Amino acid sequence: MHVVPLPALADNYIWLLHDDSGNAIVVDPGESEPVEAALHARKLTLRAVLLTHHHPDHIGGAERLKEAFNIPVYAPEDDRIAVATHRVKDGDSLALSQPAARFDVMAVPGHTLTHIVYVGEGVLLCGDTLFSLGCGRMFEGTPTQMHASLQRLAALPGETLVCCGHEYTAANARFAQTVEPHNAALNARAQEVDTLRAAHRPSVPATLASELACNPFLRVNSDEVIDWCRRHGAANDPVARFAALRSAKDAFKA
């Protein structure tokens, strides 16, 4: 399976997955034009759309793609996603025939209450829950929910490719380095990201193993993160540390 990030809108990524026989799926098409252009350029046929949550920058192009290609649209159980033809929930498995692919569905409340991710074929299609070197804002969920969701994702195999919904990595790196300035893996990743972005290349996907080594929101039990949280009055438990990190990131000016 080939995994291609398609830039869209201001800083979104639409994820295009396709096989060698010309069959493709897309995840979170915030607009249809980049998808249609990529399909034409690669001589692919779109077979399905997968959606992670209801925000317009993730579903805005789904209606046109559904109508143009007469394809199913998989989405969480959320009435705000009217374009859905199939609803999926935590614990479901989604088996596609073209391209031949299987994804497990996981509920990850936090960014929104009905956010889901798709895991399979070596990738984690995680929308706005986990970003490289960061995580999503909590628009609807609580720190307890978001921390638990991230911990579920952290338990996936380290070689899993994290395919997130935005190009936020450089800004996330600058915040992460204020939390763990002595983290060698983080500093190397930040340099790598600067090089990629300077060449106008995507910073993602990244492996989950890299995120576990670098992303402070997955590292709330590491010594340097605990020290940072202690200085910010929140060293008592992992959820409190996560909440302190998220609050600080919300106010951070890169």
Rank of each mutant, 00 (worst) to 15 (best):
residue 201 R to P: 02
residue 208 L to R: 01
residue 186 L to S: 04
residue 202 P to M: 11
residue 154 A to N: 09
residue 192 E to Q: 12
residue 148 A to K: 11
residue 170 A to C: 07
residue 148 A to W: 04
residue 168 Y to G: 00
residue 156 L to A: 04
residue 152 R to C: 08
residue 187 N to L: 14
residue 184 A to L: 11
residue 185 A to L: 08
residue 202 P to C: 09
residue 199 A to S: 13
residue 148 A to Q: 12
residue 208 L to D: 12
residue 146 M to Y: 01
residue 190 A to F: 10
residue 162 V to Y: 02
residue 216 P to Y: 02
residue 154 A to P: 00
residue 151 Q to A: 10
residue 146 M to F: 05
residue 151 Q to I: 06
residue 218 L to Y: 05
residue 187 N to M: 09
residue 196 L to S: 05
residue 179 V to L: 06
residue 161 L to F: 01
residue 173 A to R: 08
residue 189 R to P: 04
residue 190 A to E: 03
residue 178 T to C: 13
residue 162 V to T: 10
residue 169 T to E: 15
residue 177 Q to N: 08
residue 188 A to V: 08
residue 154 A to T: 03
residue 196 L to I: 04
residue 164 C to P: 01
residue 177 Q to V: 09
residue 206 A to R: 14
residue 166 H to R: 14
residue 174 R to I: 12
residue 189 R to K: 13
residue 175 F to K: 04
residue 203 S to D: 15
residue 196 L to Q: 15
residue 178 T to A: 11
residue 196 L to G: 02
residue 198 A to N: 11
residue 156 L to F: 01
residue 211 E to Y: 02
residue 175 F to C: 10
residue 198 A to P: 04
residue 169 T to A: 15
residue 175 F to E: 03
residue 179 V to T: 01
residue 211 E to A: 05
residue 216 P to V: 14
residue 187 N to Y: 06
residue 158 G to M: 07
residue 154 A to Y: 05
residue 171 A to P: 00
residue 180 E to D: 10
residue 164 C to E: 14
residue 160 T to N: 08
residue 176 A to L: 10
residue 156 L to H: 06
residue 149 S to H: 07
residue 167 E to R: 05
residue 206 A to M: 12
residue 159 E to F: 03
residue 157 P to K: 11
residue 212 L to Y: 07
residue 213 A to D: 13
residue 164 C to Y: 07
residue 165 G to H: 04
residue 189 R to V: 10
residue 149 S to T: 10
residue 177 Q to I: 12
residue 218 L to W: 07
residue 213 A to P: 06
residue 213 A to E: 13
residue 183 N to W: 04
residue 205 P to R: 10
residue 151 Q to V: 08
residue 188 A to R: 14
residue 174 R to G: 01
residue 165 G to N: 03
residue 157 P to F: 12
residue 184 A to Q: 12
residue 214 C to D: 06
residue 174 R to H: 11
residue 154 A to R: 13
residue 153 L to C: 09
residue 168 Y to M: 14
residue 209 A to D: 12
residue 159 E to W: 05
residue 150 L to T: 06
residue 191 Q to T: 13
residue 201 R to A: 13
residue 217 F to Q: 03
residue 217 F to P: 00
